[in-house]
Design a protein around this nucleic acid. Sequence first.
DNA 1: CCCCATTGTGCAACTAGTTGCACAATGGGG
DNA 2: CCCCATTGTGCAACTAGTTGCACAATGGGG
Lengths: 183, 183
Amino acid sequence: MSLPHAILTALVEKPSSGLELTRRFDRSIGYFWSATHQQIYRELGKLEAEGLIRALPGRQPARGQKKSYEVLPAGRAELSRWTATPQDPKPLRDTMLLRLRAAAVVGTAGVEADLRRHLELHERQLAEYEEIERRDFPPGRDSAEDRLRHLVLRAGIDLETFWTQWLAHALAEFAELPGDEPA
Amino acid sequence: MSLPHAILTALVEKPSSGLELTRRFDRSIGYFWSATHQQIYRELGKLEAEGLIRALPGRQPARGQKKSYEVLPAGRAELSRWTATPQDPKPLRDTMLLRLRAAAVVGTAGVEADLRRHLELHERQLAEYEEIERRDFPPGRDSAEDRLRHLVLRAGIDLETFWTQWLAHALAEFAELPGDEPA
DNA sequence: CCCCATTGTGCAACTAGTTGCACAATGGGG
DNA sequence: CCCCATTGTGCAACTAGTTGCACAATGGGG
């Protein structure tokens, strides 16, 4: 539903091949939209068939050859249209929260270690985002584009901050909990 | 992947019919796991077929008749097993963030109104969660079960708090932005 | 020089979630 | 008393995302 628009955005920012897109999704784009290389290749095919993007002229190779894409005017128009279309926030689905709720009725065995592991993962992610912020958004640069992109990165940073704090809080609660309640 | 476990958790807490479950998913369970009635009915069928839950004895009616389910020992065991199994946090996919990133390259037309609308939605949600907190978790009650459930609700509250603050911040940035940049 | 690990592209089958209906039972208003 | 809005249950088709491979090109090490 939005993967094509994520790809269009990335390609407007910079024409890329499937692999380059995959790398970019693993890094900067990944903090608000994740995708696997299979999804990306499939979607590139569709977008090309629909006339929203096209392969950059040059060699037109078979498999195993880089093929770069750029956005056509129709693609840019579609991206514009989509961006301006209201959309509802999608409801939450979070396994860790569900597991804690389940732990309340079937016991907390095994959950604590995973809370700790998640805390580490989120701390690492947070550090990475803060590194990106330092590198890409030094004080002073404030074109409209920079501001918007910085805003998006801030959301990533604030979300990871929330998780690290919440997980730390959860672990503190666990420490105070009586032993594993039976059921 | 986790809907069956969400349903098991709900049914351990209190045996229910499909419709009652739907209502509970729309309220308290919904703040960490959302599901439609269609998903729920389908999953109830599967769980019954697998012997994890069973219809409460009583009238065994056809369509249009309430049928309540309770969790069987095998279901409780499965829920326990699942809760203790490590799982990776799932990567983020958020359309509003993507739209802002897209707006950076194709212009901000139309986004601001929707930011405002989202802010209102999240403020309403936040107020609702805080109401639940006041009602269900008055100071003093602190059985292990209460603490765990409160922890989960706190996550919901903190997440909504994050969104309201971030959206307010985004709107403030928009106010300072030069007019709509062309492309 | 050729083999095999690495890089890059892609298909197919599956799982999870959504959308759009269909239809049975119930019960209050005309 | 019967009609029709409401409540409750469910199927089917579709869309989005995941998993598991397959296979081509490339290039450095033996």
